[in-house]
């Protein structure tokens, strides 16, 4: 457990120094832990556990957009679990239940828990449709068509800088819309 969390901190340090691959690995590594905690939260609230994927994506977006509030001197896991706990409580509340989520829900999770019967997430995809055209096109190009920033720039005759701006604004707007819904 300890080792895993040290590895996360190391990856996050690499990520903020500009290593996109390390950031990708970090997000991949934390996702099963977040998913297991989301399923447990849903189960405890008497909600269908197969709804966990929307919550996982909600947490990932918040992690991404609030990265700058992480203190590089501090371990990454407590920060991550605090973000996750907030979003999980929020999501469960939105689904109509008031529940208490324990921080240990995250810390004790073993990532190899069975991940069966998960319904595909639908909220992000739905909100994607309500974004301004340019932001939606850029996001779809990168997310759905797996295009790089460079390819996306060429496809829409934009500069790479403009693609980066549209990508970030799109993600921020998406998150705001998810929160409002």
């Amino acid at each position: 457990m300890r080792e895993r969390e040290d590895e996360w901190t190391g990856l996050m340090l690499l990520a903020i120094s500009g290593d996109g691959a390390a950031y990708h690995r970090l997000l991949k590594a934390v996702t099963p832990v977040l998913r297991a905690a989301a399923r447990r939260g849903l189960a405890r609230a008497g909600q269908p556990v197969d709804q966990s994927e929307d919550i996982v994506q909600d947490i990932l977006l918040a992690v991404h957009l609030k990265r700058h509030t992480w203190d590089p001197e501090a371990p990454f896991a407590p920060w991550l679990f605090a973000i996750a706990r907030n979003k999980l409580i929020d999501s469960l509340r939105r689904r109509g239940r008031r529940v208490f989520v324990n921080i240990e829900d995250f810390a004790d999770t073993i990532p190899s828990e069975p991940a069966a019967e998960i319904a595909p997430a639908s909220e992000v995809a739905a909100q994607l449709q309500s974004l301004p055209a340019r932001q939606r096109e850029v996001l779809q190009s990168i997310a759905v068509d797996s295009a790089s920033i460079k390819d996306t720039a060429a496809k829409f005759a934009m500069s790479e800088g403009a693609v980066r701006v549209a990508l970030h604004r799109g993600l921020a707007k998406l998150t705001a819309k998810l929160r409002e819904q």
Binding site: L27, V56, Q57, A125, A143, I149
Partner: peptide
């Protein structure tokens, strides 16, 4: 959207630096 795709999209935005 699949979570893997979302993760890839977030990683593509890694260069963005928010102000403290």
């Amino acid at each position: 959207m699949e979570t893997d795709r979302l993760i890839r999209t977030l990683a593509a935005d890694n260069a963005y630096r928010a102000r403290p």
